[in-house]
Design a protein around this nucleic acid. Structure first.
Lengths: 331, 331
DNA sequence: TTGTAAGCGTTATCAG
DNA sequence: CTGATAACGCTTACAA
């Protein structure tokens, strides 16, 4: 490994001077700078971040904690974060972990984050009020999670639920089944409540399928249960796009036509949604943008900038595709 | 931040002794150990990995470089790696990056990996022979990439291609279109060649759609092109499951029945494949297992264990689902 | 069995 | 403008 010492030696200066030029800090004569720069190039030197981190007590790393990137919604968040971090003057890198929504695992990761001097963490936790986070001395941004008292970036889940309900009702569903996502996940509950609110207001009846995870494997199970319990349902508001896929699959299997017999609306708008047949109508959450916003917010926090708004809510939107009927034009 | 010094002070011993007990190395009296352990607990001390890393010149971090986790195949690899790393005695954490198949980005990431003293890297690169890797002084494992001279973990792409061709022919396709994945991606070429080999041997004609990326957005474009150029095709061997999804989508759009008019075989077996309607028949690559194996191999390399086999090839298999016809039983 | 001190690669203070 | 040098938190000879 080539160190600042080697550079100093080759350039015939002290390490202090080398440090000055590579950090572009303090006075250094043009000629000296040139010598150092040449030496840096000649030796292909690049500073050891670990040593820097030790001295400064802060690294150029940020910790990213997501439930499970195997669920296609999360990679988009991750990319948003990563890409935004890259755009910084001195870009940050990610140390990354999947929590599997396990508080213990989360704790372990947060621990290593700290041990590695990360400057901040972005977390899609189910336990925002856990003492893990309370005690953290570095900035945290909750992503895809609502938190009033802490910095957070999320989509308007409640409005998303309302939107889904409005659109499906407008298109003629009357016996709507709402899939209620895992109860410990706030955004999932928000969606659910939003949907129920509108359905009730419309004076309609509704049925509920309670799901306990967003796992792909289990999605089929809920879908089967749904059609078994509520065979007459003519509209499904799924807890996310994966669940919606499972519903489409099951509907097809048992011969129910989508959208004619039953309409389906998903949630998230994961990349594959548009490739389904029929393509999935869904409530879009701008995941990539959310990741970017979270990263931006964290950077501000890290740099102690004056923050105008610590809680960024992004809008959801209805993406009309093939699993809902065309709405009759008025008149 | 609480340091080893604080612990030493509280326990009434020297920092060396504290170090000995937290690392369980060297002699230390039982009573002393107890005192130290109590102090550690009282202060909730956990050692600064950065300082350790600086001294030892190696961290507990490994670098993971993937093309794009937004493609659902890669998160599985990542999870395999992560989970396996977790099972270690002293578990490793991931510093992670998406390369977008951009050599420059790769280089940047490898650079930060080194600067952070990672003990090894796992990379799904398109440039295994790039000087970046040649020069690396730490172990590298290529994942999902073939490399004869360097440690690597991959699936048998060629056999996968053969398998796809055999199965689709056996099931009656005669005018097969093969989607040829990006030319710079070896596994994609292997699949392609394997498929062609079998089709040729069978004395059949074939058509080729050349694709230049695995991007979800572009997948639809290739699919459209496919049916436009080869309207009479009765079997498609897609370059991966995403491409297959796009083909299914397009087939449905233009009214071609799957599998009756045209059979489709994908590649990868991403988690959502089974949720499509019809469910996708595909050549499965054991992505999660591959990630695990890569991690295991890297650990061996890092720990300088005697390695029996530096090139691990995992088997592919045909997953029969709904986009291929049932094969007639013999006789 | 324990403590002292050097050293890991950098940055920053303080003389010069 | 430049160079010594202490310090960051930890590990490990070496001494005691």
């Amino acid at each position: 490994m080539t160190t600042i010492k080697d550079v100093a030696q080759l350039a015939g200066v002290s390490v202090a001077t080398v440090s000055r030029v590579i950090n572009d800090r303090g006075y250094v004569h043009a000629d000296t700078r040139k010598k150092v720069e040449d030496a840096v190039k000649a030796l292909n030197f690049s500073p050891n971040e670990v040593a820097r981190s030790l001295y400064k007590r802060k690294s150029k790393l940020i910790g990213l904690l997501l439930p499970d990137i195997t669920n296609p919604y999360f990679p988009q968040l991750a990319r948003g974060v990563e890409d935004r971090m890259q755009e910084q003057e001195q870009d940050y890198r990610l140390i990354f972990g999947n929590s599997d929504e396990d508080e213990r695992k989360e704790q372990d990761y947060i621990q290593t984050f700290i041990q590695n001097n990360v400057v901040g963490v972005i977390s899609s936790t189910n336990y925002p009020h856990s003492s893990i986070y309370e005690k953290l001395k570095i900035p945290v941004v909750f992503l895809d999670r609502t938190s009033l008292d802490r910095p957070s970036v999320y989509a308007d889940g409640r409005e998303g639920g309302r939107l889904a309900a409005r659109e499906i009702i407008k298109r003629g569903s009357r016996r709507i089944t709402v899939m209620q996502g895992p109860s410990q996940i706030r955004p999932a509950q928000d969606r659910f409540e939003g949907a129920i609110e509108i359905i009730r207001d419309a004076g309609l009846d509704y049925r509920v399928i309670q799901t306990t995870s967003f796992s792909i494997n289990e999605a089929s199970v809920w879908a089967k249960e749904l059609f078994r319990k509520y065979a007459d349902t003519d509209g499904v508001i799924a807890s996310n796009d994966i669940a919606a896929m499972a519903v489409l699959h099951e509907a097809s299997r048992i011969g129910r036509k989508v959208p004619d017999d039953v309409q389906v609306i998903g949630f998230d708008d994961i990349p594959m949604s548009s490739l389904l047949s029929p393509a999935l109508s869904t409530i879009r959450q701008p995941a990539y943008e959310m990741g970017r916003e979270a990263a931006g917010l964290l950077i501000q926090l890290v740099e102690q900038a004056a923050i105008e708004n610590k809680n960024i809510q992004l809008p959801v939107s209805f993406i009309e595709r093939g699993t809902t009927r065309k709405v009759r034009s008025d008149g």
